[in-house]
Structure formats: C-alpha cells, structure tokens
Write a protein that binds this DNA or RNA. Structure first.
Lengths: 141, 141
DNA sequence: TATATTATGTAGCCTTGGCTACATTTTGAC
DNA sequence: GTCAAAATGTAGCCAAGGCTACATAATATA
C-alpha cells in the first residue's frame, strides 16, 4: 500500500497542488491569447471562448481576472492584449508545454494523446522535473 | 509559436482537462482514506484534514461529496469507510500514482520532487499514456 | 465522576469558474 | 445610411472547495 508520508510533507504537497490548480487557468488563457495574437493578429473573446470550449460570458469573466492579475489589458469591443508580465508567462508556458509534449512523444505516447495529456500535466511539473525532462531528451539524441 | 490546433480539437482537450480536474479531489480523498484504513485501521476526518492540509470543516464537506458520489460511507463520530466503488477507485489511483512516480524516478527526477509532482500529474494521465509509461519502464529493466 | 480536551458537526461567508438570458455595441450587407 | 447579424458585455444563478466561528459529542484525565 502507499506507505504514508509524514503528515507535514503530505500537506505541503497537496497545498502546492492546489496553488498550481489555481494558476492553471490563467496560464491557459495567457498561452491561448499569445497564440491568437501571433497567428490572427488579434484575440477576441468569442474566439477564445470557442477554443476553450466555454461560453463567451465565461471567457469574458476570466479575461477580467487576467486583467486583475496584471497579465492582460482589454478595452470594451477592442480585443485582448497581454502585458509584459502576460507575455512572459505565455512564453514560459509555451516552452514548458513543448517540453512536456516532446517528452511524452519520446516515451512512445502517440501525438494526439501527448498533446491532450500535456494540456493537463504541464501545470503540475516543477522546475526540477522540467530539468530532468530536458536532460533526458538531450541524452537521447 | 504554438501553431493552433483545430478549434474543435482544442475545445475537446480543454473539456477533458476540466472534467479530470473535477474528479481529482475525489481521487485524492479515496486514496488517502484507503491508506489510512490500511495503516491505522480507521480514517478520521481530522486526520484526513491534517494530511490534506485543509480545515476539518472542509474535509467533512468533501467527505459528504464522496458519500453523494457513492464512494464512501460515514456515520456521525464513527469514521469514514469506502464502498466497493470507492475501494476500486482508490486501487486504480494507487497503481497509477506508483507508475507515475516510478517513471519520473526513471527519468532522473529526485524522489521528493517525483512524489510531489506526481500528486498533481497523475490526475491528467490518460490510459494510453499510462501504457506507454509501463512499456518504457519495462524496456529499461 | 466531573471536567477539560479533543474530535466532530453545522452554519454562513468567500472566490472560482461554469451557465443562460438579456442588453448593447459594432460590423457588414444592402 | 439603414438595418440585420454578430460580437461583446452585464446580471444573476449554480456547485465546488476553501475558510472561520460556534455548538455538540466523545474521550481522556484528574
């Protein structure tokens, strides 16, 4: 059976997980907005909503959270843009996403599953683990 | 840049992620309750709360969700038990957790980071990816 | 046994992140 | 330039999952 870790250790792990969970959504929005800006030249709430599979009302509400977090700016009827901080986050997320997908692929996970699973996994991978992933991929070349 | 996947594909991936997110907590509770039952002979709300790092009130509320989901039973002041369904879930989660930790370790992630990250990652690993993990580990022996 | 401590349970509040329904603004087609 | 369609925004609802504060039950100790 899963021999129990010390109470404090276990509580700390779960706490870390909960905080990762709360930033996961912001990360996804930032990454998607960056992608839309790059490929379409603009990021409109309706497109964001369609791509995330949520209602436009939900997307708009989340966008205002991004604004509150200092990650995005948006004026009514004028699309969404990322702040410096938002761009930096999006870039970090993009790199991490790529790394997770590449690792899964290297382990023999089919592309579609790798892309889909990475969407969830990426938010919970620590720097330490990311380094190990990169190392492993490099050693494989 | 992250070339955008087709709209529908992307929306489906995010939807899957959201549904995984909503079961993650139930999975964690089931696993922890199983561990406590195995090692202590009982699973008390206060212990569960301490191990998850939440208040006992939060734990009790979550336990009632487990009951509603048919995963657990509990009578006032008498501890928490798992139903058949709850046990089955806990067992599946335990196996998956082990596999994820072992894989991370095999990739060179230090134990503590592997255990901590697995806590978040495990909920988002598909059957397909799990199989690939097992295969990879086997090929390494 | 009486009492203090600990565990459990309840109530009520908050934020997040979904939704629908409705109002308003912009845009595009005539 | 008008008017219909599409996009955007607002309001209000819900459940999940946190919390604190308070009440009650069980247990351990003097």
């Amino acid at each position: 059976m899963g021999k129990l870790p010390a109470e404090g250790t276990q509580a700390r792990r779960f706490g870390k997980m909960r905080s990762a969970q709360s930033t996961a959504l912001l990360e996804d929005y930032a990454e998607l907005i960056a992608d839309l800006l790059a490929s379409e030249g603009e990021a409109r709430p309706t497109d964001i909503a369609r791509r995330l599979g949520v209602s436009h009302a939900t997307a708009i509400k989340s966008i205002s959270r991004l604004k509150r977090a200092g990650l995005a700016t948006a004026r009514p009827y004028r699309g969404v843009f990322l702040t410096e901080k938002g761009h930096a986050l999006a870039e970090r997320v993009r790199v991490r996403h790529r790394l997770v997908v590449d690792l899964l692929r290297a382990l023999g996970v089919p592309s579609e599953a790798a892309e889909a699973d990475a969407e969830g996994i990426e938010h919970y991978v620590s720097e330490t683990t990311l380094k190990a992933f990169a190392q492993f991929l490099k050693s494989r070349e």
